[in-house]
């Protein structure tokens, strides 16, 4: 338990020292998206009878919680390849599970910070949503899944350079295609089938529906819970692979 706390606290302290910079950098892309797609492009577009901005913001919440959850991999890479602090943790009597949970929770915390920033900007833009339990469950599960995948990828790669590959080929495309900026239903049939397997597609649907104050999508919620369990197992398995 203390091991888990130590791993989590370490990441929190690192974030704390960088908080102003993080807040700034977490604000840049949502503001850009809102300006470019929401106000610039989307003024005259409606989706399912709502202004595009109302479609876009929950999508941004989903994409951002995914990216920032996964972003914990950058911290782990720095700890592993640059500062070698990962070895300090490896030499400590901390179980792999405690380590993985500590890092995942740190990823989830990053995600909640970025989502709070988006919602703050949203409030400034005078767009209002309902933020019930299903909304936050969606954010939590989505960031949990991707933080676990971030941990996994950080354990499996052999150098810092490999990481960019994973991000460019998997994470960025998913952020665009997972029902964030346009409805998956607009795509041709076969593409839809592929997109519907992405975790982000379920997360963005769940989060959006909840934000609209409509009934909870239990199906998507169930799938996300299952994926969270699976990704946790994967991350747990990957830790031992990082030893040489």
């Amino acid at each position: 338990m203390k091991g888990f706390l130590a791993v989590y606290l370490r990441e929190l302290l690192i974030m704390w020292h960088r908080l102003p910079r993080m807040v700034l950098s977490f604000s840049v892309s949502p503001v850009l998206y809102l300006v470019a797609f929401g106000l610039g492009l989307g003024k005259h577009i409606t989706i399912h009878g709502r202004p595009y901005l109302e479609f876009l913001i929950p999508g941004l919440v989903a994409a951002s919680s995914m990216m920032q959850g996964f972003g914990i991999n950058v911290e782990i890479n720095v700890a592993r390849f640059y500062m070698r602090v990962f070895e300090e943790i490896q030499a400590a009597p901390v179980s792999n599970l405690a380590y993985v949970l500590g890092e995942i929770l740190a990823g989830v915390s990053r995600a909640f910070l970025s989502v709070s920033i988006i919602l703050f900007i949203t409030a400034l833009a005078r767009v209002s949503f309902s933020y019930g339990p299903a909304f936050w469950a969606g954010v939590f599960l989505n960031s949990f899944i991707f933080a676990a995948l971030g941990v996994t990828s950080a354990m499996l790669i052999k150098s810092h350079a490999d990481q960019a590959l994973v991000s460019n080929f998997i994470i960025t495309p998913m952020a665009f295609l997972g029902g964030t900026f346009f409805p998956v239903g607009n795509m041709p049939g076969p593409v839809q089938i592929i997109l519907k397997t992405l975790p982000l597609t379920h997360a963005s649907r769940l989060i959006r529906q909840a934000a609209y104050g409509q009934k909870i999508l239990w199906n998507d919620l169930g799938i996300l819970v299952a994926l969270a369990g699976a990704s946790l197992l994967l991350a747990y398995w990957s830790v031992d692979k990082a030893r040489d």
Binding site: R10, L13, I14, H17, R18, A79, M83, R84, V85, F86, E87, E88
Partner: peptide, 10 residues
């Protein structure tokens, strides 16, 4: 350890 492994930003 032979190589320093401290958290430089802490």
């Amino acid at each position: 350890p032979q190589a320093l492994n401290l958290d430089l930003d802490l």
